[in-house]
Nucleic acid binder design. Structure first.
Lengths: 232, 232
DNA sequence: ACCTGAACACCGTTCAAGT
DNA sequence: ACCTGAACACCGTTCAAGT
């Protein structure tokens, strides 16, 4: 209602002489995010936890909550920071690939990207550029918005799928299990699976496949009108 | 090398009379998965943990490791169980929608589905049916395999994106943050974002959008040849 | 063979108390 | 205002020991 503390509070007075050691730098959102990126690079997203981060900052986990809403907020900020490194070209495939490359580079980050809506400046810059390219290609605005969503969805999901499996021992076991299950398909039990064979079904080179995925989205997006507003 | 225990072990002899209470049923993979599905329905996938599950089975978490490799394995088995409920029609959209509906119904399950390759019988039956429909549509086998992947990827990722946000308070805050960030785009700073406007960019009705996504995949998949095996 | 309890090594988040 | 320690309520997984 009205200001009560006209007196200067003790904690507001910086103590005259206090410069002993390298000095623990004051906490700030930027500092926290920077430290988080460092941990991400060195140890992966799994280790970017409130507790681990506080430890790196020589602080307590509870202190971080002044600057960060929760873990999801933290991860979103980290992702946006990384998106700042991608080069904004005028080539749609190049843009999406650059985005995917960032996510591939940091296993586990893609998983959080699927779930946590980013809203940082670098993310905005990326979607602005994608929209510009789609507009230049003559795509109407409403469909451009949807195609943008679809492109980022596929890019993020591909990265999530891929990056989680890399280096994971149990992921290998899962693949083996699926390969064996597929191999046991007979022309009687699962004719179409048997006809294709394991080799075709277990995705080939990831890069070519992603290339084709993106081609499909662009070709399909350009040729597919919005469905009528009311369904049957 | 050779069998040493020809003598019957004490623990192999079922005690003659032991029927006091409703009787704790013996553990088994099926029983474990059934209990996990029950917890999923009642409390969500976040609560389908080894400890919670053991508690429901009146056992210890460590005991479950005889039947289940790890938490990912458990979740995969749960998903396969749920996939058993979907009706296998001859309509591609219907199939994918049924798959999506299962994932939508259980928030959080989709997230695990992206990461954990299922290999259970119900999953096989689903992909067999999708392949059959694609083959009937005249799609060559190699492309059918990739389109199958793409369809399930988009379906799973859409569900993951959607289902995590439902009922999450912080997800709403994230959406608000993005909406505000988008709203602040000016024709100078982000012309394409500003031109489209927040309403177009924040996806409209999910059902129509998914419908369009699937149309795009099918149209694009039918018209897009595989890229040449070697890139530039 | 199967099951157990206890241990190890962690989590996110809240809250009263300190400066 | 900002920071802290301690607490609450959890996790997955391993392992020695029991039957």
């Amino acid at each position: 209602m009205f200001v009560t503390n006209v007196f200067v509070q003790p904690w507001a007075v910086p103590s005259i002489s206090r410069r002993e050691r390298p000095a623990k730098p004051a906490l700030s959102r930027d500092g926290i995010v920077a430290a988080a990126v460092e941990i991400l690079r060195a140890e992966g997203i799994e280790r970017v936890t409130m507790r681990r981060l506080a430890q790196a900052l020589d602080s307590g986990a509870a202190s971080l909550y002044v600057y960060v809403r929760d873990t999801a907020d933290l991860h979103a900020a980290v992702l946006d920071e990384l998106l700042g490194t991608i080069e904004l070209t005028d080539d749609l495939h190049g843009l999406v690939r650059a985005y995917v490359d960032v996510l591939y580079a940091y296993p586990g980050l893609a998983r959080t990207a699927l779930v946590t809506r980013p809203s940082g400046p670098h993310y905005l810059a990326l979607i602005e550029r994608v929209l510009a390219v789609l507009a230049a290609a003559g795509l109407p605005g409403d469909r451009a918005a949807w195609l943008l969503d679809l492109l980022l969805l596929v890019a993020t999901a591909s990265a999530a799928e891929h990056s989680t499996r890399r280096g994971s021992a149990t992921a290998q076991l899962e693949d083996d299990a699926l390969a064996e299950a597929l191999a046991q398909a007979t022309p009687e039990s699962f004719p179409n699976i048997a006809a294709l064979g394991v080799d075709h079904l277990l995705a080939g080179p990831g890069s070519l496949r992603l290339q084709w995925f993106l081609d499909v989205l662009v070709n399909g997006g350009l040729s597919t009108p919005r469905p009528p507003p009311t369904g049957s």
